[in-house]
Amino acid sequence: MADVIVVGGGIIGMTAAMRLRERGLDVTLWSPDAPADTVSAVAAASWYPTGLTFEPRVLAWAAATYAHFRRQARDGVPGVMVRETRNLERDGATGEPWWAPAAGRVRYLPADPPWTREVRFDAPAVEMDVYLPWLRQRFERAGGRVVRRRVDRLEEALAEAPVIVNATGLAAGSLCGDPDVYPVRGQIVLVANPGVFVSVRDLTRPSTYVHPRTRDVVLGGTFDENSWNTTPDPATRAAIVERCLTLVPELAGAPVVGEKVGLRPARRGGPRVEVEKMSGGTVVHAYGHGGAGMTLSWGCADEVASLAT
């Protein structure tokens, strides 16, 4: 038997599995999907606690994750970079955003209407199609095991390990009978990068963002609550491109190279990270991170590892 089985192969499950293995535990990760097929692979993956409100441990997770990705960027980890980021606000706020203490040096600049302020900071960004396979390889080289397996009941994993980590995202709603779990549909468009290096985010709804990566630029997006539709919509694509061109006119004429739809695993009340004792053993729940999985991942993994050991 393994010491711990992590159920779920997205960024939350992979980082938790890595932290547990680093503590010397025998860890197996169960995932029905390859890294490229998880919802994490669809994410724009630019550090920012999208859709979350202040909670001390959420801020701590975000700060730890920010620091970890900054170190990985300096170390040349594949798929990890740091981008100057401009958040454009319209609400007239003058105080410090709740997440700012986690983001290093944050600057506040005046902005032209319709915006009321620009918040500028450096943010880690991750190309998930590169990073997730690298992380899985690192986990396996450290002695972890990955098994392609889907579960219908958490008891299936508890039959094979005394402790499991439930990092199943949206599936946690049915696996745990949690009515607070719901999908938030996100559609993105990928265009060839014509030489853009600064991320820009307009914080109104629908959120509009431009996140440059190595070869392409992620344009978004949508925030469609309780939608299970994973088919890209042409009208939505056109609207996204139009909004993003308003923010970054340099993208005019950049060819579209792809589009994706992902369902963010949101939860009313915020992420559930806690221990539950069941008849077959111990479950450490780690789900409900919504669109902030990358932003909270490594910090959350530290807490999950502590709860599991």
Rank of each mutant, 00 (worst) to 15 (best):
R120W: 14
P97T: 03
V189T: 09
D91N: 09
L251Y: 03
V163W: 00
G10V: 08
G169L: 11
T208R: 08
D129F: 11
M81G: 02
G76H: 03
A125I: 07
T65E: 06
W47D: 05
T309A: 12
S297E: 11
L263G: 10
L59P: 01
F54Q: 04
R21Q: 12
P78E: 13
V146P: 00
A238Q: 05
E140M: 12
W99R: 04
A17F: 09
G177A: 06
F69D: 02
G10F: 11
R267I: 15
R145I: 04
L132S: 15
R243I: 04
A67P: 04
R105I: 09
L170E: 07
V304S: 08
D3S: 02
L88W: 07
V7S: 08
E156P: 02
G258Y: 01
E303F: 04
R107E: 15
T230Y: 07
I188E: 08
D224A: 15
P56R: 05
W228R: 14
V39D: 15
E276H: 14
P255R: 01
V82A: 00
A167K: 11
V273A: 13
V6Y: 09
V7K: 05
R71E: 10
V248C: 00
L59M: 02
L247I: 01
V80E: 10
V283I: 15
P133M: 14
G288D: 14
A266L: 12
V189A: 06
L296Q: 09
K277W: 11
H211Q: 04
A43K: 11
S227F: 06
L109K: 09
Q187L: 07
R150Q: 07
G24N: 09
A254N: 02
V42K: 13
L307S: 01
R19P: 05
M128G: 09
T53N: 06
A308G: 02
T204E: 15
R71H: 03
V189H: 02
A286K: 12
E250A: 07
L132Y: 12
D129R: 15
T214G: 11
A159S: 03
E156N: 02
P32A: 09
L175E: 03
A103I: 04
L175I: 01
D37Y: 10
P49Q: 08
A111Y: 05
R107F: 08
A161E: 06
A142E: 12
F139K: 09
I240D: 00
A286E: 14
A142N: 02
I240N: 03
L263F: 10
Y182K: 12
S227N: 14
L247M: 01
E225Y: 14
V27M: 10
E303R: 03
A17P: 12
V217S: 04
G269R: 12
A286W: 12
A64S: 11
T246K: 07
